[in-house]
Simulated assay, not measured.
Amino acid sequence: MCRQPGPPKVIGVTLVIVDAANVVGSVPDGWWRDRAGATARLRDRLPGDLRLPEVPKPWRIVMVVEGAARGVHGSDDVETVAAQGEGDDTIVELVRAAGEPCVVVTADRGLRARVTDLGATVVGPSAARRSTGTH
């Protein structure tokens, strides 16, 4: 089970679950014209752009994809899980099943409440973007 409050403190791997639709949708850069492409770009940027200074490494990055982006596959550094229904429900199930500390990257208020109730730490989408202010 994930723990709260604050960042995970256990030795081992920290599970970082990224709400891909929420993170992609947090920047009005035309993502709606190519949701799968925007999600694939996020996947490719995550290993270098993810900023979680309070969260110990190593990280296991899992990106939950849904809808038109459901076909985006993982990479060497980022796993993907295709939501069969709502992405939020899939994220909650991943948090519930986690046997390791976890952090969820999302701005979705309802999802934040659901996963923090399970002990996850939540950070906003800006943690998944370059600190230079670009996206």
Rank of each mutant, 00 (worst) to 15 (best):
V78H: 02
I17S: 13
E86W: 07
A40T: 12
A38G: 11
T121L: 15
K9P: 03
A36P: 08
V103F: 07
A69I: 03
H135G: 10
P28W: 10
M63T: 09
W32K: 11
T134V: 07
G99N: 13
H73L: 11
T14P: 03
T132W: 08
L46M: 09
D77S: 09
V64W: 00
R60N: 08
R60G: 01
A127T: 02
R96G: 02
R130V: 03
E79C: 01
V104P: 10
R96V: 03
T80K: 00
V123S: 00
E79R: 03
R96T: 15
K57T: 15
H73Q: 12
T80E: 04
L15G: 08
K9M: 10
V64Y: 09
L46D: 06
V55Y: 05
V65Y: 02
L15R: 09
A20F: 06
V13Y: 04
A127F: 03
T116W: 10
A68F: 05
D29M: 08
G67Q: 06
A120V: 08
V103Q: 10
V72S: 03
L111T: 04
S131Y: 05
D44A: 13
L50N: 00
D19M: 10
R43T: 13
G6A: 10
T132V: 07
A36F: 06
A82Q: 06
R45K: 12
P58I: 09
G119N: 12
W32D: 14
L52I: 04
G67S: 06
G74D: 04
T116D: 05
R70C: 08
D44T: 11
R114A: 15
A38S: 15
W59T: 04
V103M: 05
I91N: 08
G48Y: 02
G12F: 03
P125Y: 04
M1F: 13
A128E: 01
G110Q: 09
S126R: 14
A68V: 07
S126G: 09
T116F: 07
R35S: 00
V65Q: 01
A98F: 07
V10C: 05
T134Q: 11
V16H: 04
H73G: 09
R112P: 00
L15H: 13
S26I: 04
D117W: 01
V105C: 07
G85K: 06
A113W: 01
Q4M: 12
G85R: 13
A127C: 05
R96Q: 03
A113Q: 14
D108W: 02
G133D: 11
T132S: 14
G124V: 07
